[in-house]
Simulated assay, not measured.
Amino acid sequence: MPHAPNDRRSAATLRTPRLILRPWREADLAPLFEINGDADSMRHFQSMMTRAESDAWAARLRAHFDEHGWGFWAVEEDGGAPFVGVVGLLTIPWQARFTPAVEIGWRIHPRHRRRGFAEEAARAALDFGFGTLRLDEVVAFTIPANEPSWRLMQRLGMRADGHFDHPRLPVDHAMRQHLLYRLAAPGR
């Protein structure tokens, strides 16, 4: 199992040259729904979210922060847009051949894509995960059709580790099969 502190602590804030990865604010809920309720943004997920579902997801992300002090951060552009998306690390709450594990993930608002924000923020999250949290490994996963996502996983140095059936999707669901990528801590 990867080492990840579970003690309560104040929520971490991370900075990159262009971005601030910070705890959630109420003002983030509307732009988060613009991502989660957008057909194009959610084309590689089971379905778009209603506003209530998006707010509930944000509440789960905030609860993860309350418990761990880290998670999927709200990402803002330093000196620019107050919300460009979400990027971060989460403990995986379901079982698969690679769990227990911590995943890295991202969702960038359509207005802010193709500017390298997902990669820049993901690198900061990985540095935090391996440096501060001293994780042994971080995983990522997506469906095979989500080429932009698995290409980013590759740019982050993650290695492909086959497929798995996502346990939260029905057996006959077209998106049940996912690609798995892994990244070991530097020097391990």
Rank of each mutant, 00 (worst) to 15 (best):
D38S: 08
T132D: 13
D172E: 15
A74E: 02
W57K: 06
T50M: 02
Q46R: 14
N36T: 03
D66E: 12
F164Q: 09
G157S: 11
D161V: 04
R159W: 11
E67W: 03
G105S: 02
D38G: 05
L183R: 12
F33Q: 10
D55W: 08
A27D: 07
I20Q: 03
R182A: 15
A11F: 01
I104R: 03
A11H: 11
V138T: 00
L29H: 12
A185T: 03
D7V: 11
R114Y: 03
A121D: 12
P31C: 10
A12I: 13
L89W: 08
D78A: 14
R123Y: 02
E76V: 02
G79Q: 10
E26T: 14
W70S: 05
A121V: 00
A174D: 15
P170I: 05
I143R: 05
G131V: 04
P100Y: 08
E147M: 06
P17N: 03
E76C: 15
R188C: 02
V84C: 07
W106I: 11
T91P: 00
R151T: 10
Q95A: 12
P5R: 07
A52H: 04
Q177N: 08
Y181S: 11
I104T: 11
T99H: 11
L183Y: 04
P5W: 03
E53A: 15
T16Q: 02
S54I: 13
R168M: 15
I143Y: 02
R176D: 10
P82E: 07
Q177Y: 01
A81S: 13
Q154I: 10
V75P: 07
R134V: 05
D55G: 03
A30L: 09
G79I: 04
R15M: 09
S149C: 14
A52G: 01
A124K: 07
L21P: 01
V86M: 14
R168D: 12
M158R: 04
P93L: 14
R15G: 06
A140L: 04
A30M: 02
